[in-house]
Amino acid sequence: MATFTLNINGTKQEVDVDPSTPMLWVLRDHLNLVGTKYGCGIAQCGACTIHLDGTATRACMLTVSSVGNSEITTIEGLSEEGDHPVQKAWLEVDVPQCGYCQAGQIMTASALLEKNPNPTDEEIEMAMNGNICRCGTYTRIKKAVKLAAKS
């Protein structure tokens, strides 16, 4: 066990965990931030996507010991009131079905738009390809990303 001071959603948080613990489980089991989801544990499905210094990153394979002073943003910290343009677009298009993968999809989409405010369909698909949606909401996700890009 070791103590780590993490910068999460703009707040310093201290955790005492095994250094090999992935950020996914630090967030969920130790910090009560459960919006970041477990789907595969091997960075194949994207359900655990967070922002690490603004870059979409899979929390399931990011060990707590490798984070250092980097800034972590989770779905809970994306906006104060759930009114980030991507979140608003998701509601407007009524994207979710079961909803489980959507926090990860939103985190990937918001990181994309931060770097590329006006992506083409192909750029959206390439950026989002690491996020699986088992319910098949893909066409609406693309619609919502384009809607968010406009706003």
């Binding site: 759930g82 979140q87 509601l91 009524d94 979710p96 909803g99 939103i106």
Partner: peptide, 12 residues
């Protein structure tokens, strides 16, 4: 719209 929509997109 989905009654749980807001909770879903905010990670509740």
């Amino acid at each position: 719209k989905n009654v749980d929509g807001k909770e879903i997109v905010t990670g509740k």
